[in-house]
Design a protein around this nucleic acid. Sequence first.
DNA 1: CATGAATGAGATTTCATTCAT
DNA 2: GATGAATGAAATCTCATTCAT
Lengths: 205, 205, 205, 205
Amino acid sequence: MVRIDERSREMVPETKDRILEAALAVFGEKGYHNATMAEIAEAAAVGKGTLYWYFPSKEKLFSGMIDHGLGLLERNLMAIITDRTLSFPSLFKRIVGYYLEFAYTHRHLARIFLNSMHSLDGNGEIQDQFLQLHNRFNKLNSELIQRGRQEGFLRPDLELERVETVLAGLLSGFIGRCILIEGDHQLAEETDFMYDCFLNGLGAR
Amino acid sequence: MVRIDERSREMVPETKDRILEAALAVFGEKGYHNATMAEIAEAAAVGKGTLYWYFPSKEKLFSGMIDHGLGLLERNLMAIITDRTLSFPSLFKRIVGYYLEFAYTHRHLARIFLNSMHSLDGNGEIQDQFLQLHNRFNKLNSELIQRGRQEGFLRPDLELERVETVLAGLLSGFIGRCILIEGDHQLAEETDFMYDCFLNGLGAR
Amino acid sequence: MVRIDERSREMVPETKDRILEAALAVFGEKGYHNATMAEIAEAAAVGKGTLYWYFPSKEKLFSGMIDHGLGLLERNLMAIITDRTLSFPSLFKRIVGYYLEFAYTHRHLARIFLNSMHSLDGNGEIQDQFLQLHNRFNKLNSELIQRGRQEGFLRPDLELERVETVLAGLLSGFIGRCILIEGDHQLAEETDFMYDCFLNGLGAR
Amino acid sequence: MVRIDERSREMVPETKDRILEAALAVFGEKGYHNATMAEIAEAAAVGKGTLYWYFPSKEKLFSGMIDHGLGLLERNLMAIITDRTLSFPSLFKRIVGYYLEFAYTHRHLARIFLNSMHSLDGNGEIQDQFLQLHNRFNKLNSELIQRGRQEGFLRPDLELERVETVLAGLLSGFIGRCILIEGDHQLAEETDFMYDCFLNGLGAR
DNA sequence: CATGAATGAGATTTCATTCAT
DNA sequence: GATGAATGAAATCTCATTCAT
C-alpha cells in the first residue's frame, strides 16, 4: 500500500519549471559564480531548500538548466537536419536561421552557450558537459557541411575541420551580435548574408 | 593616457612582473573565480600581502594582467596596421597571422581574451574594461577592412558592421582552435586559408 | 503512571510499531545525529509526515524508542529480581545472563544503552531520560548486590556504591564485547566467568 | 630568498593551544554534533576563519584535540609500563591511579574518551581514530595483565581477552564515577579498592 | 617593501518540521 | 490517518582583505 520510491523524489513540474526559469534568468544575467542560490530561490519564488528538493547541488542545477534549455535547440536542429527533402541552400538557411532566432529569443541561454566554449568558470563536471554539448553541435554542423559538399555546393578539396571552424566562427560572431546589440535584428537578411559570405566570401567580384 | 597618480608606492619592477606572470598562469589555468590570491602569491613566490602592495584588489590584479598581456598584442597590431606600405593582402595576412601566432604562444591570454567577450565572470568594472578592449580591437579590425575596401579588394556594398562581425567570428573560431588543439599548427597555411575564405568563401568554383 | 492525555490522536498500533522498529534500526546504526527523519520514514515505509502523527519530534521519537526497547529489558529484569525463591548465585547469573542475552539479541539497543551513559548526543531532555533510566537500572543492580550481602555471599564491609560501580563496570565491559565482536558468544560461560570474577577476583590461588 | 612552504601553514603555538583548549571545553561540554565552530571560535577568542587556518575541518579539529589531549595520557602510561623495576602491585596501582587522576583532572577528555568507545557520533574517520586509540590503550592494559601473570599474581588459566574485558570494564566504571560525581574523590583509596577487587573479588571471606 | 596570521562576510547545503491535500 | 513538497534556520567552510611586525 505504501510504495517507497527510492529512485527519485516526487516533483511538481510547475515548480521545477519555475526553478529552471529562475536559474536561467539569474545564471544568464550574472554568470555561474556570481549567481547565488538565494537569488535563484527568490527569483523562483520558492524557499532555498526547495531548490535542493529538485536539484542536489548548485552545479547540477546549472547543468540541468543547460540541458533543459539547449535541449530544445538541439532537438529542433536535429529535426531540421534529418529532413532529407531540403537542398543545401535551404538547409543552411534553416539551420543558421534557427540558430539566430534561438539566440534572439533566448539571449541568456545564448550567452551561456557562447561563454561555455572556452570558459573555466564551472568545475570539472560542468566542463565535461559543455565539451560534450559542443561536440554534439559540432557534429551537427559537420553534417550540414557534408551535405553541402555532396550536393556540390562546397569546394571538395577543403579539410572538413577547417570548414567546421569557419562555420562555428561565423555562428559565434553573429550570435554574439544578437546578444550584444539590443533592438530588433533582420534575422532573415542576416541569414542570407551568412550564406552568401560562407559560399562566396566578401571579396570584390 | 599615462597617469602618475599611484603616488608613493615604491615598487620593484621585477617583483611586479613575477606577480603578473603568476596571475596570468593561474587565472589562465583556472579562470577568475576558481583562482585564489593565495595560489597566485605562491606561484609568484611572494607573500599574499605583497600582492596587495602592487594591486589593490583581486579585480585590479586581473585587470592589470589583461592590460599587461594584451597590451603587447595591441601595440604590435597597431604597429602593423599603421604601416602604410603594406597592401591589403599582406596587411591582412600580417594581422591575422600575428593574432594566431600570439594565441599560439600565449594560450592563457588567448583563452582569457576569448572568454572575455561574452563572459560574466568578473564584476562591472572588469566588464567595462573588456568592453573597451574589444572596442579597440574591433576598431583595429575595422581599419583593416576599410583598407581592403579602399584598395578594392572587398565588396563595397556591404555594411561595415557585418564585415567586422565576419572577421571577428573567423578570428574567434581559429584562435579557439589554437587553444583547444594541442600540438603544432601550420599558422602560415591557416592564415592563407583564412584570407582565401574571407575573400572567396568556400563555395565550389 | 499511566497518562491518558494524548487526547484524540488516533493511532494504528501496527504503524507505531513499524516506526519504532525503524527508529531502532536507524538510530542504532548511525546514532542520533547522523540519523535523519527521512531515513527512518523510509525504513518504516511511511511518509515523513506520519512520523509526526505518532511522535511530536525527532527527540521524542528517540526517547519513545528507548522506552519501548529498554522497557522490555527493565520489566524482565524486574521480574527476575522480584523472584524471592532464587538464591544469590542463581539470581546473579539470571540477571547478568539476561543482560548479556539481551545485548546479544538487541545489539542496536545495547549500543544505544552503552552510549547513553556518558553521551552528549541528544539535548537536555534526552539526557534527563537517560539519567533516570540509568538510575533505575542502578537501583536494580543495587538490589541484586544487597541480596548478595544479606545472604552472606558478599563482603559486608564494602561501600555499596563501590560495589555498584564494579558491577556496572563489568556489565559495561562484557556488553561492549557482545556488540563489538561478531559471531556467537558462549553466554552461559561468560556469565559464569563474571560470577567467579565478581566474587573471587582474578588473582592466583 | 623567499621560501615557499607548501607543507604546512605557519602557526603560532599559543593560538593553536587556545583553539585546542576551547575545542576541548566545547566538545567536552556539548558533544561533537551539538558543538558549533562558531562557539569554539568564540571560546578561543579567535575568528571563525582562524580555526580553519589551524585545522582544515571540524572533524580534524576534533580529532586533533583528541590526539593532543589523550596523547599525554598515553605517553605517561607508556612511561609507567616500560618501567621494569616496578612489581605488579605497584605497577597496577600506578597505572590505574594515573587513569583515575587523569579522568579527575581532565573530565571533558575522560567523558569524550568513554563516549568514544561505542559512539556513532562522529563520522567514519573519527570512528577509525577512536578504534585505533582504544586498541592502543587495550594493548597497554594487556601488557599490564601479562606482567601480572608472569609474576604469578594472576590466575594463569584465564583467557587474556576476558581479563582485558574485566580491567576495561572496571576502569570504565570508575572513570565514569569520576566524571559523574562532583566533589573530590579519594583516588588512592579507590585505586587500592580496584586492586583488591581485581585480584580478590568482592565475595565474603 | 614584504609577510602571513587573522578575520568575517557570505556562500552552499542539510534537515527537522509544517500543512494543504 | 497519511502524505511529501515546501520551508528556512542554522551549520560548515572559503577566501579576499587587513595590519602588526
